[in-house]
Nucleic acid binder design. Structure first.
Length: 260
DNA sequence: CCGGATGTTCACCT
DNA sequence: GAGGTGAACATCCG
């Protein structure tokens, strides 16, 4: 999916609907209504509401209204279409086709226009008043002190801790590998084994990775991306083949020479 | 044909 | 409680 960088693009693309009133709801897929939310509830509660703003916590996009908050998740293959236009034309690991049969949720607005989630694999979802307290601080905003505390509180593998959305929101598999490479830290290190200096270095690397990859155009533009394959080579140590392991249940590429 | 792929949630196990 | 594992979702790609 989309990681937090893409969700932020989606959010910005959705801002033009602020101020509009919902005239119709398309919720054809019960699977797509998450938590206690049902498609019936979406159809019953949303029409007539006016959009008052958008927010984002990690990978969760929040649409504020003069009624309930609408939470939108995109899974790995979800894209947003605002007024029939997608801000990101193609998505890694998703389909290049653009089949309206994959529209899982949509809003029509009284003065025209629409907001649609098109998601081939149905990994995303929609929820009314999602529990925002279940997410940790957003990775793009978290300051050093709470970041230290997040690392210190767990002996889980460093990468698993960074990707635990309840502790730190927004870091996905690609961002995690890239920031760890940038910081020179091995992904399987226990999170609480980092020195103060390493914690600070990782915090800087995280902020920098988010900034740089955001400017380049997304989470798939990392330094490691081209080498995410068997026989991939470290961008910093050109003679060293990257290791490929599972860490925290996800495929992990890292350099055993420069990531200690 | 088979195995994986930017994610989340949940059940189940240690 | 903390962590880990595997399943589920469905499609495309090598």
């Amino acid at each position: 999916m989309p990681e937090m960088l893409e969700i932020e693009e989606y959010r910005l693309a959705a801002n033009p609907v602020i101020g509009r009133s919902i005239s119709a709801v398309h919720a054809p897929d019960e699977w797509y209504a998450k938590g206690a939310t049902t498609t019936d509830a979406l159809r019953a509660e949303l029409p007539g509401l006016r959009i008052t703003g958008t927010r984002r916590i990690g990978k969760l996009m929040l649409v504020d209204t003069d009624g309930p908050v609408l939470g939108l998740r995109y899974g790995m293959t979800g894209r947003i279409l605002v007024d029939d236009t997608a801000p990101i034309a193609a998505l890694e690991y998703s389909s290049d086709r653009n089949d309206p049969a994959w529209d899982r949720f949509g809003l029509d607005f009284a003065d025209g226009g629409s907001l649609v989630i098109r998601d081939p694999r149905r990994l995303g979802g929609v929820e009314l008043d999602p529990d925002e307290s279940k997410l940790g601080p957003d990775a793009a905003a978290v300051t050093l002190k709470p970041f230290r505390a997040i690392l210190t509180a767990s002996s889980a593998p460093l990468k698993a801790r960074l990707m635990d959305q309840a502790k730190l929101a927004g870091i996905g598999n690609l961002l995690a590998d890239d920031m760890l490479h940038r910081a020179g830290l091995a992904p399987a290190r226990p999170a609480n084994s980092l020195s103060d200096q390493e914690q600070a270095k990782l915090h800087r690397a995280m902020r920098r990775t988010i900034e740089v990859l955001g400017a380049r155009g997304g989470s798939h533009t990392g330094d490691l991306q081209a080498e995410r394959k068997r026989s991939g080579v470290c961008p910093r140590c050109p003679m060293v083949e990257l290791r490929r392991n599972d860490v925290g249940g996800r495929t992990t590429y890292w350099c055993a020479d420069c990531q200690i």
